[in-house]
Design a protein around this nucleic acid. Sequence first.
DNA 1: CATCACGATTTCATATTGTGGAATGGCTGT
DNA 2: ACAGCCATTCCACAATATGAAATCGTGATG
Lengths: 255, 255
Amino acid sequence: MKDSKNGTSIQVIDRAASLLDAIARYQEPVSLKVLGAETGLHASTAHRILGSLVGNRFVERDPAGRYRLGLRLLQLGVRLHSNIDLRAVALPVMEALRDKLGESVNLTLREGDVVVYIEKATPNRMMHVQQLVGSRAPLHVTAVGKLMLGAAGDEAIRGYAQRTNLPAYTRNTITTIARLKDECSEAVQRGYALDNEEAEIDVGCIGVLLYDGTGNVAAGLSVSAPIERRRMAWVDDVIAAGQQISAQLGHRPQT
Amino acid sequence: MKDSKNGTSIQVIDRAASLLDAIARYQEPVSLKVLGAETGLHASTAHRILGSLVGNRFVERDPAGRYRLGLRLLQLGVRLHSNIDLRAVALPVMEALRDKLGESVNLTLREGDVVVYIEKATPNRMMHVQQLVGSRAPLHVTAVGKLMLGAAGDEAIRGYAQRTNLPAYTRNTITTIARLKDECSEAVQRGYALDNEEAEIDVGCIGVLLYDGTGNVAAGLSVSAPIERRRMAWVDDVIAAGQQISAQLGHRPQT
DNA sequence: CATCACGATTTCATATTGTGGAATGGCTGT
DNA sequence: ACAGCCATTCCACAATATGAAATCGTGATG
């Protein structure tokens, strides 16, 4: 009933995962009742699995007994394999870029059909774009997302479009395959991508891709600013910062 | 080896947790063989559980088939219950404090015997203390850790000391129960704590506690700077920032 | 090129393990 | 005091995860 990609999957783990997801969907602690309804699990079953998750600190209980996510998830999440290096390497460059442009700089990873923000550097300006580490956005509404799609090829773009149906977030969001293909390939050609209020009104981005030693896309780097402050002159700085990080990851540019 | 706090615990989940831990212990992707040895699980069993974890994106496989942690953990980790509010509320205040003092400001949560860094604001100075979100430190070597211990009472301090044996990180680390008790209670009295190169040479901190609407300790806030730049005059600013955040969390100060 | 060695993967009979219906416990509001 | 609503515990049952052994892949070696 559950898994589609692989015939082998352990029931309890699938159920535990859906419980975690259910908890994550809410902004506040959730009761057992709700979680049972949300996941379709029997209250007894949900209770038992949650008890085990609590024992392993994946989930916590608030004083009222409701469930919320536990800190172990954060501890594990930030230890992600090579990303620990990636973040440590990228951060100083990101801060330098932030200081030069005076705007927010973000580091993102692709995960399926979304980008996940894994590091950020924010400027000391009263107004600046704020993105929480760990938040997500669909590929087709972000600058680096479009670059990643473009790098993956037309076939992948078509697949993405069909899966997601390109939901609109603002009036500028790209909602047709034709336009998405154009923008993505153009962006890859240029080596950078723009986001003109496609994810959020008044927010504009400039993004580039980062490459690791094997030449694969390692992550995305972008600058986010109120659209009226964004300058095309920043493109060179963003590209330079991207190349600097890529170089530190072992990437030797050629083309 | 199983569970200590609760008789009920699901075997597969315990095993999955220990596999995740085993993966996290390594800085690079790990083979099935190693994970089996590390966790004491039969290769077949480990393989099956890992397969399910991969299916749920808690774990990824690199091109060579070795295992590493998956992005889902980060996604879940940063959605931690109320912490999402806590971070959103604290961040602007943290950035203001960073701008005023020109040094790194960190937000931490207690988790067992360690503090976990969950948010940060770094200044645009060439040299500043850098702490990755999600990294950890023992209670007795950090300013907020000592406050948290102090708030928990002498009994808790003794327990902590016995469990951890107060390992030294620098020559300034507190390594005796007597001194730890003194420092902790004194810090709580004053309302702030210092860290004089106790976690890392050349790094000094000033920390305060944050309280939520129920009067409980919600988190810790601290400023980290190279020890020679740290000024005691900052104490008032840090305390004020802490009170501001606490107030937004619904805390009504009295005393 | 054939063979070997080692680890990953799959298979499958088995009983251990998790399941969920029902009963119990605990709390809140009336 | 009572009713109603959840959370929690119990327990007989069989579905589920288990792990020994067989198979598959792959890279090294002669």
